[in-house]
Design a protein around this nucleic acid. Structure first.
Length: 293
DNA sequence: GGCCAGGTCCAAT
DNA sequence: ATTGGACATGGC
């Protein structure tokens, strides 16, 4: 099942680590394991070559959107001077084409959460309800399909909090085919269809549209995007999300999704760097010795 | 230890 | 049409 494919203008690490997808693990030698649907595969990049074990090349090509004309997309976005640093920081970052149900579930779980916790919730659900996939003797639990999921009470025991009810409703509607129906619709109509799901409003809908349905005009506005957009383009003034989305649409059109993912990844990396530097310059001040014995 | 999290929903302006 | 608070937990 091992195969090799040509992957120019691609960064496997930037693509996986940009926060759009949660089911991957770095393994020795700079390679990664990826688990999506019932596919569990190993992938390693060497220059413009991708070595894959456990999945067909055609599947991997589609999953990583290797058909997108990245040089053209990045050149176009780089013409925006304020965006250029973000693009240059993570060239080769591609939007991933995820499974719609898993993507919907993941971003419902993302509500008022953080990446480590989201990954943990997903892993718990897979361990508890999923089947198993194997790669060269290595096992990994599949994320459960909608009909395999437990009820709200059980999901709350897995510490999903208030997201449990949302996920149960999403599973119910997914079983009814709402995701399949939405997938074939144009952007705006698909968004309206998705927002019928409890727990899915503008932001989560845009994530599904962008990361699963391939609507590259989608521009999910979360706390990070809101902050970086307001800083870069709105003179620091408080701005409604609706206005931010409209601005992105006008400025970047069908490339807004790529702009968004770069801004998200770049702003978080930058924030992390700033925190690290601050920690070095300002060592934690010693408090009055109340904590000493 | 407290603040805030890849938000959403609902009620009260 | 906006705005504030509740919602369950847990990272940091």
């Amino acid at each position: 099942m091992a195969s090799t494919l040509h992957a120019p203008a691609f960064s496997l690490a930037h693509t996986l680590e940009s926060g759009q997808f949660f089911r991957f693990l770095p393994v020795t030698g700079g390679a990664f394991t990826v688990h999506t649907g019932r596919r569990f595969f190993r992938v390693e990049q060497a220059g413009e070559t991708l070595f894959v074990d456990g999945a067909p090349a055609a599947f991997v090509r589609e999953f990583f959107s290797l058909d997108h004309d990245l040089p053209s997309i990045e050149d176009s976005l780089r013409r925006d001077p304020k965006l250029r640093p973000a693009i240059d920081a993570h060239t080769g970052l591609r939007l991933i084409r995820q499974d719609p149900w898993e993507c919907a579930a993941a971003f419902i779980l993302s509500i008022a959460s953080n990446i480590p916790r989201i990954s943990g919730n997903i892993a718990d659900l897979a361990r508890t309800y999923g089947g198993t996939s194997t790669l060269n003797g290595l096992e990994s639990p599949d994320f459960p399909r909608p009909h395999e999921l437990g009820g709200e009470r059980d999901l709350r025991r897995l510490r999903l909090g208030f997201r449990a009810a949302y996920l149960v409703q999403a599973a119910r509607l997914a079983k009814g085919g709402i995701l399949d129906d939405a997938e074939s619709l144009p952007y705006e109509e698909a968004k309206d269809a998705l927002m019928v799901i409890p727990g899915v409003a503008e932001k989560v809908a845009d994530c599904i549209l962008l990361f699963a349905f391939g609507h590259r005009a989608a521009f999910p506005v979360d706390t990070w995007i809101r902050k970086v957009m307001i800083d870069l383009y709105f003179q620091g003034r408080r701005t409604p999300d609706r206005a931010i989305r409209a601005f992105a649409q006008e400025r970047w059109g069908g490339l807004a999704g790529y702009a968004q993912q770069h801004l998200y990844h770049w702003s978080r990396k930058t924030a992390a760097t700033v925190r690290r530097l601050r920690a070095m310059q300002e060592p934690p001040r010693l408090r009055a010795s109340t904590s000493l014995p």
